[in-house]
Amino acid sequence: MRLMRILPASIVSLILFFLAFPIVVVAIVSFSSATYLTFPPPAFGLRWYEAFFSNPDWLKPTWVSIWVACAVVVLATFLGTLAALGIARLPKALRVVAAGLILSPLIVPGIVVAIGIYYAYSRYGLVGTPIAMVLAHTCLAVPFVVTSVTASLSGIDPRLEQAALSLGATPGATFFQVTLPLIQPGVLVGALFAFITSFDELIVALFISGTGAVTLPRRMWDDLRFQIDPTIAAVSTLTIVLTAALMGAAHFLRKRAEQNRMATSSAAP
């Protein structure tokens, strides 16, 4: 009887350990003081972080990644939010086609997207430019913005917009004073996803970043071909912390928006 209760729990714990352990190991290794990769580290130190922050070969791609991701956030959030607003009101047949096109990067294998983009962009001399990275990453980030904004739009009571119009707000004023503030959490979550999508993206970068727009993942990849030096562990740890923080923020925003919605609708069913 006792075994029946402990056995499942220990199995689940083991699998959870399998999930978390590799990431924890990377974090621990990054604080190693050894000059080579070994676990457990003989002593702890920040030398690999110093190595990262003092090496322009690492810092430059980091800045490229950040700038590209920021540009992607602006472009993807703007286009994606507008489109989500439109798609929700399209006739069904058109909506299915539009959603299919916009969401397809989620299922089309990454390599197919990457070489397709490489094939076309190289024709126009875009390969190796940050612009190409922004243009391509926006395509990959947009599905997340559209799904996130669509989800928050579907949670809005259409009577709120009617109420605004009945109170004398023009359609423009209704959008900026009512609709936009209400979908704002969804837009923010979409923007965070867009940032992470671009910041972590590698396959497209492998083909089109060339030498002129080397991003951080691309730099890590190049480095891994030659050595497994713990600097990569430090970089990895930094990106884990950054993405986990952004994802945590997104999660928190979504939860809060959900609670707000429930609080107002429960008082007036």
């Binding site: 009577r159 709120l160 004398g168 009512v178 007036a268």
Partner: peptide, 14 residues
């Protein structure tokens, strides 16, 4: 310029 009260009140939650 017509006032309107909705069944679920439609107060702006934000």
């Amino acid at each position: 310029n017509i006032g309107m009260v909705f069944q679920n009140y439609a107060l702006f939650p934000h």
